[in-house]
Design a protein around this nucleic acid. Structure first.
Lengths: 227, 227
DNA sequence: CGATTGTTTGATCTTACTCAAGTCTCGTGG
DNA sequence: CCACGAGACTTGAGTAAGATCAAACAATCG
């Protein structure tokens, strides 16, 4: 399906926002929209001709499997996020839909060419990659020393931020896009430890659980203070 | 001191290698070389006007301190590496010399301008940032699940790779640029655990220690196979 | 409705942390 | 040159946090 930039909900937040109309139309011609259902695979590790994409709606996970077959989630992608490794000979990670999602997909060659023709686009992608690096290092810092409950608290905090539309406040009530197992894979914990941590956060009056996925923050400030 | 690109040992590996002579000379005019002794600070977290730099020789660490004052090392920088956050309002990390080092330092504004004028440079930095992101995620993967000994083994492996000049083979004999404490901070372990892991790797015949810093790999293949 | 998958909770075990003591290394000054 | 002291490193014993194993419970889907 062809792109419909005019009605795109992330048109002024995604990387393509830096392009002028002409350049964006050129790029749009080489792109296609794609819809994924929860669990659908966008790219798989090892693919040689992996494309790149911008997420319009939904959520994705970027993950690998270690030698014992355990999934390890390295990052999440939220709407307006860029996905793809422009310079890798083949895809390093699996990219999978966490919820039903919509994307614009572009062949890598076209994106690389657009990069040459639009220095602004190159700069925008550099900025995004820099931010992604910061996020990755944040997670790394977290994995390094925090206690289990601190990691879970921090993940919830990040989810609350991502769930809010406005960049200043975090959502106070939202649904987790991840299963307990996925949270565990992301934080380097087990399912049981994640579950116990959530139970404890609830017992301590920091949040309330609504069903299995729903979270309501009671005391957001405390979230940041958990060891 | 002014730059001497002609005699630069990393002139064909660093990001500036993609520039033609004219463009490189332009950039060189705004840069200065800087020498650091072990322990010297290049940038500190929070600096508003942090510059950016290319490492010519030596080694750096990129680190933060958590709320309890523990250092957490997020990445190492080896010769030809690029250092700096072009789009952050202030520096996110401390950057400190691990050994005596030499760098070319550029004001951020000049680098951003060079980016606009040389799409190739933007592309080169994008590629580097992408690679740095991959390295960060690799470390993240490691921190997630591996046993202590697996993490230490993997760090040693990375050091061996970095210590070799040729990109194909890893060095078989080299000196660790990190103290036990720094290794611990990087891997999310304690000094004692790192020390015990090294002892065990030696006892199992995988490596030999020469003094405190020297490492000689006996069975490099085994390094990759540790839990 | 049953089956499957995901979640919670409990009991036990393992790994790495903590605390403590001793050793090695290296630089400084007598 | 040696003695000393400060750091860095190693090793041991006990402890704690989270993993593992196990069982019950909830949600979802055909």
């Amino acid at each position: 399906m062809n792109l419909a930039c005019e009605t795109c909900p992330v048109r002024d937040r995604a990387a393509c926002a830096v392009l002028n109309d002409g350049a964006r139309d050129d790029l749009a011609r080489s792109g296609r929209t794609r819809k994924l259902r929860r669990g659908d695979i966008l790219f798989s590790r090892g693919e040689e001709d992996a494309a790149c994409a911008m997420l319009v709606s939904g959520a994705l996970k970027i993950a690998t499997f270690d030698t014992e077959g355990n999934e390890h989630i390295l990052a999440l992608v939220h709407p307006s996020g860029f996905i793809g490794e422009l310079f890798a000979p083949f895809a390093t990670y699996d990219v999978v839909a966490l919820t039903d999602s919509e994307l614009c997909v572009f062949p890598r060659s076209e994106m690389l060419q657009a990069l040459d023709e639009n220095p602004k686009l190159a700069k925008a992608l550099l900025r995004r990659t820099e931010e992604e690096l910061r996020r990755s290092r944040k997670l790394l810092e977290l994995s390094g020393r925090s206690s289990a409950i601190g990691r879970v608290a921090s993940l919830i905090r990040g989810m609350a931020d991502a769930a809010s539309k406005t960049s200043c406040h975090m959502a106070q009530k939202f649904d987790l896009p991840l299963t307990r197992g996925e949270m565990a894979n992301m934080l380097g914990l087990t399912i049981e430890t994640v579950s116990r941590s959530l139970t404890r956060l609830e017992r301590e009056g920091i949040l309330r659980r609504n069903g299995v996925r729903g979270i309501e923050l009671i005391d957001p400030a405390q979230l940041g203070l958990m060891g």
